[in-house]
Design a protein around this nucleic acid. Structure first.
Length: 423
RNA sequence: GGAGGCGUCGCAUAGUGGCCUAGUGCGCCCGCCUGCUAAGCGGGUUGAGGAUAACACCUCUCGCGGGUUCAAAUCCCGCCGCCUCCGCCA
């Protein structure tokens, strides 16, 4: 409802489920009969064969009995097939309807669309470049001055929205992502380098083929999809498994290239590396118990804040409105960094609580702690670093001469304190 | 890319169309026995769905999906994965 979806689908689902159950019941009881009769055929055939081998006088009678039983079984078999296809159709119909329903929004998520987010916190102050007496350069101009970004050759090689990170640019990205991996590992995450090509059932299960399907590259010859985030392979990592969460959440830090078609965003963010077809990302991914999910979401957000503090950029945290959530998310917090030359905050991280949505579709379960059987777990994800962070780092830490101060936490990973323009 | 082999319960293995409910061993769980431990004895031990107040019970599940048959772990077709050999190659 909060997403603005049609509530009528619920009635359709209930009706479809009713049809499935009744047709399944009919099929199963007749199937049980058929099995029993069919088993008699086997026994009758065996008796006949034995009598025949022994030259018994009643061989003829037994043969007739066996054939009679077989005829009855054949008749039942026809009817069973009919009922089975009815039951299968009913189940497929229900499945289709269920897949169309987005995740249930968590209480307290702001209603509305893209612009109806609520700012939860603002951290740090944007620099006053007027007071400092110079006009800030944008990240691309800085990147070119520093010999860090080459958009022109990126376009020559890969087309629009492709780029080369060169020299210190390449090193800066590696330093940033290594810092993110180091933080995650220290926090107990298992480091992962993931496949970036995934099978259809994985990307469908992760929920990326509903609202985001235009965003996904598809390799037709192999029927594989290029993941837009390592959330996809990490969600699939435990697919169809029963995992043990008794010792707490399972946390993975995935490092991967990410691919996005950016269809429908023509003309938007065309300058620089804000919005590109390929970038790199360190992603946190957590499997936890459903009742722990909201607390885990807060933890992921806290780790994002820790990482943003390390790169020393001003940012705000927003609680994304219901209508702007993907199909999988029940709640989403974005951290947006201040971009001086745009005079606004731009998304650097995004953490979603997908509750049981992805795990249900991918078959990730745990032993039910309150008794017998299994139950679906919850999954959550959050960003720890991406190529886009370079934008915020360059612009916020630039100096009048075009050089850029390296945040202290990055210095050990980059091996220098200042990036200076190449001659 | 070519040729061949393989995929059975948590693990290992038996099972080439029916004749008990997929047998056996290991592991694990429960119980018994023993002064303790080990051993021994008995029972249990995939998952999904239906049904039920809860049981009982029923259906499906031998990599996955189709097919043949009254009947499929077993036969046929497609796919996925693993192994061996050959070819090609960063």
């Amino acid at each position: 409802m909060a997403r603005g979806e049609d509530p009528g689908i619920v009635d359709a689902i209930l009706a479809a489920d009713e049809r499935r159950r009744s047709s399944l019941g009919e099929f199963e009881s007749l199937r049980a009969q058929q099995k029993a009769v069919s088993k008699d055929v086997g026994a009758a055939m065996g008796a006949f064969q034995q009598a025949k081998a022994a030259g018994g006088a009643d061989a003829g009678r037994l043969e007739a009995a066996a054939h009679a039983a077989r005829a009855r079984a054949a008749h039942l078999s026809e009817r069973v097939k009919g009922l089975e296809s009815v039951a299968d159709e009913a189940a497929a119909e229900l499945g289709d309807l269920l897949r169309r329903v987005g995740n249930v929004i968590i209480e307290g998520v702001p209603a509305g669309g893209e612009d109806d987010y609520v700012v939860l916190d603002t951290v740090g102050m944007p620099r006053d470049f007027t007071a400092e007496g110079f006009a800030p350069r944008d990240h691309l101009e800085l990147g070119e001055l520093l010999g860090a970004i080459d958009m022109e050759r990126g376009a020559k090689v890969g087309g629009a929205r492709f780029y080369f990170l060169t020299g210190v640019g390449a090193m800066l990205e590696l330093a940033l992502l290594n810092l993110a991996m180091a933080q995650a590992t220290a926090a107990g995450f298992t480091p992962m380098i993931t496949p970036t090509l995934v099978r259809p059932e994985i990307i469908i299960g992760a929920g990326f083929m509903d609202a985001h399907s235009d965003e996904v590259y598809h390799l037709e010859a192999d029927d594989l999809y290029l993941a837009g985030t390592s959330e996809v392979p990490l969600a699939g990592y435990h697919a169809d498994e029963i995992i043990d969460l008794t010792a707490g959440p399972r946390r993975y830090a995935g490092w991967s290239a990410c691919y996005r078609r950016e269809a429908g965003s023509h003309g938007k963010d065309t300058r620089g590396i804000i919005r590109v077809h390929q970038f790199h990302k360190v992603e946190m991914f957590s499997y936890c118990r459903p009742e722990d999910a909201e607390a885990e979401h807060e933890r992921l957000l806290a780790w994002e804040r820790e990482m943003l503090a390390k790169v020393e950029v001003p940012y705000q945290i927003i609680d994304t409105a219901a209508g702007d959530l993907g199909g999988a998310a029940a709640r989403k917090f974005d951290c947006e960094a201040w971009v001086p030359t745009q005079g606004k905050y731009r998304e650097l991280t995004s953490t979603s609580n997908c509750t049981t949505y992805q795990a249900r579709r991918l078959g990730v379960r745990e032993r039910d702690p309150s008794g017998s059987g299994t139950r679906t777990v919850a999954t959550l994800n959050g960003t720890l670093g991406t190529t886009r962070w370079i934008v915020a780092i360059l612009e916020n830490h630039q100096q009048p001469d075009g050089s850029v101060r390296v945040p202290a936490a990055l210095v050990p990973f980059l091996g220098r304190e200042v990036l200076t323009p190449i001659s």
